[in-house]
């Protein structure tokens, strides 16, 4: 029969030699291979104690940013929700009252801002859409949870700590990927 491809390779099946039939040499060879693995480095990352380093471009959990005076940058324009292909973001806007100038940067702010982490695909389009540099993706990821409800992250989960009152936490949460504040 004509072979269908040119890759057909004729195999030669020789009867085994005596040394091969005893099997012991190959058994010892195999055992030497497994034994050599004792001295190999274990690649395991022991997760809760040890974490895998992420790449610089890793896109993780969203962070709602503040400016250098600790005011929320978000103006609840809704562009991020519009840009979101997974429709994970919802928000409610509110008007800034007199005396709240130290809390919110603009006259309008997000009273409610929720991201459903089960919907979110961490594409980073919200970060790109935001005209105010108010949202960016950090280097962490959403930890496991027992309930679906636990994956709907509200403002209190997303908002970065105040740089004025909690500078250490702010620095920790900021990470490498925060956009420069201006």
């Amino acid at each position: 029969m004509q072979p269908l491809t040119k890759k057909v390779k004729q195999l030669e099946r020789k009867p085994m030699t005596l040394l091969e039939r005893i099997y012991l040499p190959s058994i010892f060879k195999g055992m030497a291979i497994t034994f050599s693995h004792i001295f190999k480095k274990v690649p395991t990352i022991r997760y809760p104690e040890e974490k895998r380093p992420f790449a610089k471009v890793f896109r993780g959990l969203q962070v709602l940013n503040r400016d250098e005076e600790g005011r929320e940058r978000c103006t609840a324009c809704g562009l991020c929700a519009l840009a979101c292909p997974a429709e994970a973001i919802t928000m409610e806007a509110a008007e800034r009252q007199r005396g709240e100038e130290n809390l919110y940067r603009e006259e309008k702010y997000a009273a409610k801002y929720e991201i459903n982490m089960l919907r979110c695909i961490f594409c980073g389009l919200c970060e790109e859409a935001c005209p105010k540099d108010a949202i960016y993706l950090s280097e962490t990821f959403a930890p496991a949870n027992y309930k679906r409800k636990g994956f709907i992250y509200g403002k209190e989960d997303l908002l970065i700590p105040d740089p004025l009152t909690q500078p250490e936490e702010y620095e920790k949460a900021k990470g490498e990927r925060a956009p420069a504040t201006h």
Partner: peptide, 10 residues
């Protein structure tokens, strides 16, 4: 575990 480059029960 050690022969398979794993950690084993720990």
């Amino acid at each position: 575990a050690i022969l398979q480059d794993r950690v084993g029960p720990n």
